[in-house]
Simulated assay, not measured.
Amino acid sequence: MGGSERVTGGRGRLGNVLSGLAVAIGFALFLGGFVWGALVYRPYTIPTDSMMPTVQPGDRVLAERISGGEVRRGDVVIFTDSVWSNAPMVKRVVGIGGDTVRCCAQGGRLTVNGKELDEPYIDDIKADGSGKDSGMASETPFEVKVPEGKLFLLGDRRAASLDSRAHLQEAGQGTVDRSAVSARVDARAWPSAEMLERPRAYAGLPGGVSEPGPLRIQLMAVVAGAVLVVAGAAHGPVARRFGRAGREPARVG
């Protein structure tokens, strides 16, 4: 009888140690995931409809803090340029230094270095919402040689976006310094949660497209940490309940 109690007690102490370890690891993962996310990402509210349908006005997004040197074609970036506005803006990068960006090729598509781009992300609704436009990548024809260290930016809702096309007559033909970029939008957080896809159209160009940030890993750490904390905290009450049930003598009716 005493041996059985010692075995049971030993198992109980081991279970308590393991449950405490699970809680400690879980708490570290949970808190670490949040802190890591706060250091890498910043929340941002989309102010206008110029990036529809990729993001809608009022959407809350998570933008990875990056330097201008990390920007790739196809990225949706947050930047501030005093010529455009004193407030942060969000647009898509379609050309980088050395690129020739032109619109429009036969069929109405945008071209980068002579390559026609398939842009499934653009919105073809007229600015006044009265119906679909001509289906061209831009109603404003242009051809721009992007200077080194600069970016050519367009909104996904081409009919309603004030972007590089609105500044074509200025020095640099509407381009923005790479250093003006502060973050790259990685995911929509509210009202729906989803990652932004990297456009395949730019993958075949030199430099390719950017890799997604560590958001998925951070979320996995937070979820795993929460599960470990709950499981570890629940071990004690569950073990005591089953322990009492095992010690109670069987009743004979």
Rank of each mutant, 00 (worst) to 15 (best):
G98Q: 06
R102A: 14
R102W: 01
R102N: 02
C103Q: 07
C103S: 11
A105C: 01
Q106L: 04
T111W: 09
V112N: 08
V112L: 06
G114H: 03
K115N: 02
E116K: 05
E116N: 02
P120H: 10
P120M: 03
P120Q: 10
P120Y: 09
Y121M: 09
I125W: 05
I125L: 08
I125T: 15
I125V: 15
A127M: 02
A127G: 03
D128E: 09
G131V: 00
G131M: 00
K132C: 00
D133K: 03
S134H: 10
S134L: 10
S134R: 12
G135R: 06
M136C: 02
M136T: 12
T140M: 13
T140H: 11
P141M: 09
P141Q: 11
F142Q: 08
F142V: 10
V144P: 11
K145V: 10
K145W: 00
V146K: 07
P147S: 12
E148P: 13
K150W: 10
K150T: 03
L151K: 07
L151F: 05
L153A: 08
L153P: 12
L154P: 13
D156S: 13
D156P: 03
L162M: 14
L162C: 04
D163I: 14
D163W: 13
S164I: 13
S164Q: 08
A166N: 14
A166F: 10
A166D: 09
H167P: 00
H167T: 01
Q169A: 15
Q169E: 11
Q169G: 14
A171Y: 00
A171P: 07
G172D: 05
